[in-house]
Each structure stands twice: as C-alpha cells, then as structure tokens.
Amino acid sequence: MDLDRRLRQRKKELVQKWFHAVIETYSADASRFFANQKDPFANPVGRAFREGLSGLFDHLINSEQNDPRQIGACLDPMIRIRAVQNFLPSQAIGFLFDFKKILRKDLGDALEHPDFSDALKRLEERIDAFGLIAFDVFMRCREKIYQLKADDLRERTFKAFERAGLVHDIPQANAEKDHYH
C-alpha cells in the first residue's frame, strides 16, 4: 500500500482533524460555534475552513498540482478570513504546518516503512511550498486592507469632487480630517 492510497482513504478523518486544529486557534466559546453551526450563512467562517481544507487536501496529495495560482485560490478564502482576525502573520498561516503533525500521528508505526518515509518527505516539502504560497496570499490580503484603508471614504469623496471639478474646494472640508495619519 502506498502513502497516496492510504491518504485518500483517510481523507475524511484527516481533514476533520485538521479542521479541528484550525478551529482550536479560536476561543473555546467560538470554536464550538465555528465547528458545530452547520448553517453556511450563519457560520461563514466554519464553512470556509470546512470547504477550504478539503480542497487543499486534494491539492496536497495530487503531485501533479504545482500551479501556485490554483493553490493560492484554494487557500485564499481561509487566509482572507485570518488576515482580518486577530492573528499574527505566523498564526494566520500556521495552520498549514499543523497538518504535518496530524499526518505523522495518524500514520503512527507505518512511518518506519521506507516507502512511506520517502513519500512523506515529499509531501512535507509540498506542505512547506504551500506555506510559502499561503504567505503570498496573506500579504496580498493585508496589502488589500491597507489599500482599502487608504482609499476609503476620503478617496471616494475626492473622486466625486474631482468629477465635479470641485477639487479646489476640498481643503476646507479636508482640513478637519487632517489629524488622521
């Protein structure tokens, strides 16, 4: 039996464990809600991780899948949420590497098998690579946040004034807001 087949068979359990590892990073009160509220609209965070991790798992074990854009697209909904929650960057993407531990624990004694250990090494390298992509996605989300901060109301207001050819009138209105930095 090769690692690939074994992982495919164990997908449901592994993704479930991974999901709980992610959910554990929230407070006890919230994690129960994120995990148990199955309504995707009442619990969009839970939905994103449930669906996202399952897709990510498929990408991970598919050694043909090396397109960072597709992998990034799969990571995006999850990272996008963690990028605006109260996490440090390390914590925001750390859940990816949790999968290594989950995997090793799940394989148990089978790890000793030479076939397995080689395949496992390759898989762990893939996890590392995914981690780097996750970092890109995280930065993209953060940059978006900073851009939105910069753009917000002032920019839109400015645009409307600009369209109206009223830009010279703006300092008066804006002077009030200049203490924002």
């Binding site: 407070s27 009160d29 919230a30 809600f33 509220q37 969009p44 109260n86």
Partner: peptide
C-alpha cells in the same frame, strides 16, 4: 449569542 455579525466573524466571545 451567535446572531451578531461581529461574533460570527471574529469569534470574540465579548461580541456575543
């Protein structure tokens, strides 16, 4: 408890 959009999004219990 789980009806507030801030709790649903953040998971911060004080947003319940």
């Amino acid at each position: 408890a789980d009806k507030c959009h801030f709790f649903i999004g953040s998971g911060d219990p004080k947003n319940m």
